[in-house]
Write a protein that binds this DNA or RNA. Sequence first.
DNA 1: AACTGGTTTTACCATTTGTAAAAAAATATT
DNA 2: AATATTTTTTTACAAATGGTAAAACCAGTT
Lengths: 228, 228
Amino acid sequence: MEASKETSKRVKANSNGADPKKSELAREKILQAAKEVFSRQPYHAASLRAIAKQGGFDHPLIRYYFPTKAALFTAVVERIVLEFGDAHLIWLQDLDTLSPSQGLGLLVDRVLVYDRQYPHGTCIIMQNIAQVDRLDALPGYRLVPELFARIGSSFRKKVPLSAPEDEIDMFFSCLIAAFVNFLGAPAAHARRMGMDPASTEYAQWVRKAIMAQFVPWLGKLALPFSTY
Amino acid sequence: MEASKETSKRVKANSNGADPKKSELAREKILQAAKEVFSRQPYHAASLRAIAKQGGFDHPLIRYYFPTKAALFTAVVERIVLEFGDAHLIWLQDLDTLSPSQGLGLLVDRVLVYDRQYPHGTCIIMQNIAQVDRLDALPGYRLVPELFARIGSSFRKKVPLSAPEDEIDMFFSCLIAAFVNFLGAPAAHARRMGMDPASTEYAQWVRKAIMAQFVPWLGKLALPFSTY
DNA sequence: AACTGGTTTTACCATTTGTAAAAAAATATT
DNA sequence: AATATTTTTTTACAAATGGTAAAACCAGTT
């Protein structure tokens, strides 16, 4: 019997006494393969067969766990948005006591470490970001702007700045755009300087670039009477 | 008889006495429709039929002027790269006598005016930039990194700075990335602030954002003994 | 050993895609 | 006006895609 509803299958797998490993593992295997492929190609260019080949299974297996391609992509986006949703809270911890340079440096380091471990998130976002004005063509992708909005309000809360709200929003927009750009399309920038997009050399380049762009600006936004 | 070679048709159209308008106009009409569609969708998601519908003709007409979809996309990319290749020389004129703030301001204004008149270039670049590590899948797209490299060396020549070459390259990479990002995917950023991506309000936002990010940095890179 | 449930594969379908050739229409040439 | 040439449309096709159903497989249970 096939899993028509999102949860019914998992419930079933859990309910039949034995460990739910088999089904859960297969679902995970599919999600992982999809993540891989969707991070290399935009939604419409990625095919279910390519995902199946990537994961070493046959493409109708996908349908057993996800009713449509749209549902699979949505699940992938949900996953990475959840991961970012947890991670960004940690990224922003304990920055308020630091100087602009120290604080932003710590933030960048945290993001870079995260991106090394989970490199797919930014890539999937970047692959499809130019299509955000057609959200109907990108199932589930509306979660991405929503995520950015949430990270934005976290940022405003956890990094209190004295500047007017507009300017802080602008700063944040540019910062997150830079991260998505440099981490989500590393080849576009690394190749220009003859670097390997996956190298630590490039990661250090990104660090330096973001610091150079944003530290002076952040300094201007920071509380003038704050004691670092 | 069909135009197999790129130029043979045009030559023929020119050679038969009368004005070459008909053929040239049709070719232009197709290129224009393709530009429109390719600026809304990445290469693989855009179909020849969608382009034909956009231009109000039947899709096999495309093949009469362009042997394949790849050739059409290449022609579009060649076109926008040529346009940028002319335009960027003007953008960079007479900046060297200005202060970082004045010079960058003028540059940004020039780019914004250009982008308002030719909004497709940055969009087409942005739609496909995340696939730049698979140039075999994007016919003609290699011209884009090549263009960026050329603009980069123009920048270094026309805007002489005292900083080490690495830093200037880094500055330029970030600047062009910001332009491509903000102008090539305007909806992604404008919507976040509740703006219309095509509005002058958003254009002014982009101006302010780029100035805030890059003026202080440029100040550090500028010749310390230069007289503005 | 036979059965039962969940899981995976095989085979297939309708649609869309890029491409192709031939027919039709429009234009130019004599 | 009749013919030749160029341009456009009609029609068709093979490949790839998302989706579907049925068969095969596999693990426990009886």
